[in-house]
Simulated assay, not measured.
Amino acid sequence: MATSQSVLLLQKQLNELLKHPVEGFSAGLVDNDNIYEWEIIIIGPPDTLYEGGFFKAKMTFPKACCFMDNEYPMMPPKLKFVSDMWHPNVYPDGEVPNDESPANIEAAKEWRENYPAFKKRVQRIVRNSIG
């Protein structure tokens, strides 16, 4: 059954992350009974505007419903920031796009046209994420 294959794959991947953590990133289940929803914490990488921030997100992996090829890993997971985020590739509601066009037009415009204001806003978001 395809669903059991995706469950096994997700359990294996989560166990790998727990055994071999990735610096600046942590993942766990939102609910122990649902392997398809993960809580993610991303620590802002050094030497970036996001340095030192703690950003929460939720990753949802697709389950099969009608066709076998519409579940993970054939379909990508969705990531949505729960924490405030100001970034050209993150929609105002926290959703991250799958394509290369900017999701947050205002953030992209500010980044291009008024970088100091962009930087100031990101720094405020970082401060708010840790306090």
Rank of each mutant, 00 (worst) to 15 (best):
Y50D: 02
I40L: 09
I43T: 03
I43H: 06
L49W: 08
G52Q: 07
R112Y: 01
W38M: 04
E39K: 15
G44H: 01
P62M: 09
V30N: 00
K78H: 09
V82T: 15
A108S: 10
V90K: 01
F67V: 15
E37D: 05
L17P: 00
K19Y: 04
N104I: 02
K19E: 03
P45R: 11
L49V: 11
K63N: 06
F61H: 03
A107Y: 03
C65I: 15
N34G: 08
L17K: 06
V90W: 11
V22E: 05
W111N: 06
E51C: 14
D93N: 13
M75P: 00
P92Y: 07
I41D: 04
S101R: 14
P21D: 06
D99I: 03
E39T: 06
Y91S: 08
I105C: 10
E51A: 12
W38H: 08
K56W: 03
L49I: 04
E100F: 15
L49C: 03
D33I: 06
E100K: 13
V82H: 11
S83N: 04
Y50S: 03
S101D: 11
G24V: 05
E71S: 10
V90I: 12
E71Q: 14
M68A: 12
H20P: 00
P92L: 02
C65E: 13
G24I: 11
F25Q: 11
I105Y: 14
M85F: 12
T60P: 00
H87A: 06
N32M: 09
N98I: 12
N89Q: 08
K80C: 06
P62G: 04
V22G: 01
P76Q: 05
V82I: 13
P92H: 05
A103L: 13
M59R: 11
S83L: 07
P45Q: 12
D93H: 10
G53Y: 07
L18I: 14
D33Y: 04
M68W: 13
K19L: 11
A64T: 13
P76N: 14
A64R: 13
V90N: 01
G52C: 11
I43Q: 03
N89T: 12
V96F: 03
D84L: 09
V90M: 10
F61P: 00
A57W: 11
D99A: 01
W111G: 02
H20R: 08
G44K: 06
E23K: 12
P21Y: 09
D84C: 14
E39L: 14
K109S: 15
C66T: 08
M74C: 10
K58N: 05
E110V: 12
N98H: 12
A107R: 01
T60I: 10
N89K: 08
I40V: 02
A107T: 01
E71F: 02
E37R: 15
A57E: 04
I42K: 05
P92Q: 10
D84P: 02
G52T: 08
N104Y: 05
G94K: 08
D93F: 15
F67Y: 14
P92E: 08
Y36P: 08
W86I: 05
M68D: 11
G53F: 01
G52W: 07
K63G: 04
A57S: 09
P45N: 01
Y36T: 09
N34D: 14
L79T: 02
D99C: 10
P21C: 10
S26M: 09
D31P: 00
M59C: 09
L18E: 04
G94E: 02
V82M: 15
C66W: 14
V30G: 02
